[in-house]
Design a binder for these strands. Structure first.
Length: 570
DNA sequence: GCCGTTTTCGGCCCGACTGTTTTCAGTCG
């Protein structure tokens, strides 16, 4: 059992209760599900330590849900859930994943047409049966079909690194229009989340209708989904939906605030506003009908006695309390990195030469890079053996003499064998400035064996950094099973640095693990894992990831000059 | 079902847009 599974059940219970038109309970179950999902500890651990009482300490979990969690831990089932499931034997999660389908529609579909899952819904829609139901029509039927298609294509979310360039270009194009005063992204893009569901753009303009007209006709827009005087939605060519909202300047900060924080941050902030006798919406902070703040985010938070929070941490996971107490961390900045400690070249699976990579890094403003080509057991990448590494060391010395303004350090991305030994001997490793170790094979080990394997590698006095510590590929491959708490503990004990790999598909460590590592006092390195000169720009995503994990400049070793950085290694 | 320097009872974030209606329910963020 896992928090993930439990959260899924609680969410489904919320949806079933919505179908039954029960009041308020659905929100309670949703809230509990979210809390469970974002817990750092397993609910079974919490229960073991503190029993029912400890479960009730989880936000949104009271006596009732705590007892159901207890039942789940003890028996692996929740009777109330099974009762609901019996009443509605349907794949409610799958159906509600379709855009425009909510619990009420699911109920109607089940009662009228006995539809229980995506396939049956698709069949009914294609047969024109949906439009015959009262309250639905042709358009709803087509919308559902498009929703199913979209879901199948993309799982509905996009990697930040894949879509950000397009988004920035669109924003630039909006900003140069004479009738657009400001244009800013909000939502998950402004929070720099690892994946993005859709795009929110906020604009101030004295000619809203012209902005809307531009937006629906811009080359990136493929379909117009809805269009009104203040809000327009389009589907972009890249497959993502984009919402544009036009606002008066006196409301711009309020709208930024409203559309940037995730749902849970916003609920918490609005509740604080209510307690102080205000109402907060996207147009401003109001006392009765009087607008008291709205032009900037800062003035709104200030009225609520809160310090302004960086967008990346607005997820109601402690930032509200820290803001109220004036104890927000100063997060690492986007200009704070001086070096990149994982760079591949054409000596193995990289695209470019050592010199080309060094020059590209220099022109991006970096002071140093570490060359970390793969080693021999990664045969597919032409990994180096000891001899090839020795030759590369000499080659780097030669290139360093030809190039100034950037330090090229010698390193390797060494494979961790199945038993935790490395595929390069210690004598050779000692000659390198930086040794990164990583898992590239035997992903399907038990958690216990994998953890032991990685710990053994970290205990090697030559291993400075554990590269992409969990091995996940977002939307493609699950992380291998590993006990992250043990890894963090070992990192602290052995002074091994943990990597925040900035490659858009990896972003590994993920934010919640970064936060754990930071609070354990473990040092991090943010690296691009560049395989070509174009990849140094990925560092931005690694920094965003670190910021979402509440990392400060001081927690990240490659914010320091290279001489100082080296002193922090084993 | 949860929660409390407004409450252990009585509230629960809030507004825009769509589609199918003829005044509004449902969904979304």
């Amino acid at each position: 059992m896992s928090n993930q599974e439990l959260a899924k059940i609680l969410n489904e219970m919320a949806a079933f209760l919505d179908m039954k038109e029960v009041e308020f309970k659905p929100r309670a179950y949703e809230h509990a599900a979210f809390s469970v999902q974002s817990l750092e500890e397993g609910v079974d651990e919490i229960y073991k330590k503190g029993g029912l009482k400890a479960l009730e300490d989880i936000p949104g979990v009271g006596r009732g849900i705590a007892e159901r969690i207890e039942e789940y831990i003890k028996t692996g089932r929740i009777k109330d859930y099974e009762k609901l499931k019996k009443q509605f034997p349907i794949d409610i999660e799958g159906l509600m994943a379709i855009d425009g389908v909510g619990p009420k529609l699911v109920k109607k579909l089940y009662q009228e047409l006995k539809i229980k899952n995506l396939n049956e819904l698709e069949k009914a829609a294609k047969a024109g049966k949906l439009s015959k139901i009262e309250g639905l029509g042709e358009k709803s039927e087509q919308k559902i079909l498009r929703g199913i298609e979209f879901l199948r294509q993309s799982h509905g979310r996009f990697l930040l690194g894949h879509i950000l360039p397009t988004v920035r270009k669109m924003l630039d194009n909006l900003r140069v229009l004479s009738y657009v005063k400001r244009a800013e992204p909000a939502g998950s893009i402004r929070r720099m989340q690892e994946t993005v569901g859709d795009l929110d753009i906020l604009v101030t303009s004295d000619k809203p209708s012209k902005v809307m007209e531009y937006f629906v006709n811009m080359p990136e827009a493929q379909d117009v989904l809805s269009s009104g005087p203040t809000k327009t939605s389009v589907r972009l060519e890249i497959g993502m939906d984009a919402d544009l909202r036009v606002l008066p300047p006196e409301s711009f900060g309020a709208a930024l605030q409203y559309f940037t924080g995730d749902k849970y941050h916003n609920i918490a902030v609005r509740e604080i506003a209510i307690k102080k006798g205000y109402k907060l919406n996207e147009y401003g902070l109001f006392k009765g009908k009087q607008l008291v703040a709205g032009r900037t985010e800062e003035e709104i938070y200030k009225k609520l006695d809160m310090a302004w929070m960086e967008p990346e941490i607005r997820t109601n996971s402690g930032e509200i309390e820290a803001s109220l107490k004036g104890k927000l961390p100063k997060l690492i900045g986007y200009d704070d990195l001086r070096g990149d400690m994982q760079v591949q070249t054409d000596w193995t699976d990289g695209e470019n030469s050592i010199k080309e990579m060094a020059e590209a890094a220099k022109s991006q403003g970096l002071e140093y890079i570490v060359i970390t080509d793969h080693t021999k057991s990664l045969a597919m990448a032409g990994g180096s053996d000891e001899k090839k590494l020795e030759r590369q060391i000499k080659e780097i010395d030669k290139i360093q003499k030809q190039i100034s303004g950037i330090k090229i350090l010698k390193g390797a991305e060494v494979n961790i064998n199945k038993d935790g030994t490395l595929d390069i001997n210690d004598e050779t490793l000692k000659k390198l400035d930086v040794v990164g170790a990583s898992v590239h094979s035997n992903f399907n080990m038990s958690e216990q064996d994998m953890t032991k394997r990685i710990i053994r590698a970290m205990e090697n006095p030559n291993v400075d950094i554990l590269f992409h510590p969990t091995g996940r590929l977002i939307q493609k491959r699950e992380p291998y099973k590993v006990n992250i708490d043990e890894i963090i503990k070992t990192a602290k004990r052995t002074k091994t640095v943990l990597e925040v790999n900035a490659y858009p598909e990896r972003l590994d460590l993920k934010d919640e693990y970064i936060r754990k590592a930071v609070s354990a006092g473990v040092k991090l390195a943010i690296n691009s894992d560049a395989h070509s000169v174009a990849h140094f720009k990925f560092l931005e995503f690694g920094i965003a990831q670190a910021r979402r994990g509440w990392a400060k400049k001081n927690d990240v070793i490659n914010t320091r000059p290279w001489q100082e950085m080296l002193k922090l290694l084993k």
